[in-house]
Design a protein around this nucleic acid. Structure first.
Lengths: 149, 149
DNA sequence: AAGGATGTCTACACATATGATAGACTTATA
DNA sequence: TATAAGTCTATCATATGTGTAGACATCCTT
């Protein structure tokens, strides 16, 4: 389940993906444009900065920008930073594996095995989509052209 | 994220899938065999009964059994009964769709669109696996045969 | 009918996570 | 130095998750 934090983080990243080269966006503007509480978004963006996904500058003229090109940032990475592992169960996680306290046998635990499949299916979607694609979804080229007629 | 409730429910259903035709299993036995608190499992099995997935009988000789053949019960159904929609976001849900309070445009919300893909990927896994398959994973035929040598 | 077995219902308690907010502090620029 | 804007620390409220207790209802046997 994607938390509001994860959802807001993705929206903020899409917002930053739409910036012109070299431009910075202030938290307050991102928050307003995406109906997010500024203070909460402060936190979220700080986490993203700690994870190396965004660049920030303090003081006058400051703000945030993507730390890397949008097409180099996988959606799954963003989700993991904010919401943790993609796996529905810790024992099904590739990046944060942890067996159940009462685990008897990893190999024959049917629930684990099917949750690995579920995890892999989720990762297949989220790790194969980039921020640049999200931006395109939000601003479809055809749609934009038609809108201006 | 699969809750303990969802995990325990799946384990209990797998347990019931392994019963002989016509046999009933008592909550206490299922709980012990799967390291689950009996009282918590009471609740879980009652929910599964309300959803029509299990059959129960009170009194002497009572207990639980699957309400339908294991190969007719999709894993996704069980998970939905116990943990709710598979979708990471309510607006990405097929069975329990609900737009975000601040939704501006369903069609161009990139986060929603990618979460629909994620939901579909999850559903593709869980709705295409049955309880009978889970039982086989837990008790692989080859493994069992080798074990008895 | 009573007793025992077993599921079902209602309620409660506690822990954790999430979502949000406030205030102070730090950094950068003019 | 003053102002702008991000960063850190802390707190609070709510929701959810997890689990437990006790009473009640139902079924079967004696």
């Amino acid at each position: 389940m994607l938390t509001n934090k994860g959802k807001y983080g993705l929206k903020a990243m899409v917002h930053l993906a739409g910036l012109e080269q070299g431009a910075l966006a202030q938290v307050a503007d991102i928050a307003e444009a995406n109906s997010i509480s500024k203070k909460f978004l402060d936190h979220i963006l700080t986490e993203l900065r700690h994870a190396g996904l965004v660049y920030s500058k303090k003081g006058r003229g400051g703000g945030y920008a993507l730390a890397r090109p949008a097409h180099e940032i996988q959606v799954g990475k963003i989700v993991r930073v904010l919401d943790g592992p993609l796996a529905p169960l810790p024992c099904a996680s590739v990046t944060a594996f942890r067996p159940c306290d009462d685990c008897r046998d990893l190999k024959t635990c049917a629930v684990r095995l099917i949750m690995i499949d579920a995890r892999n299916a989720i990762a297949n979607v989220l790790d194969n989509r980039t921020l640049a694609e999200l931006w395109t979804l939000t601003n479809p080229p055809e749609h934009a052209a038609m809108y201006h007629i």
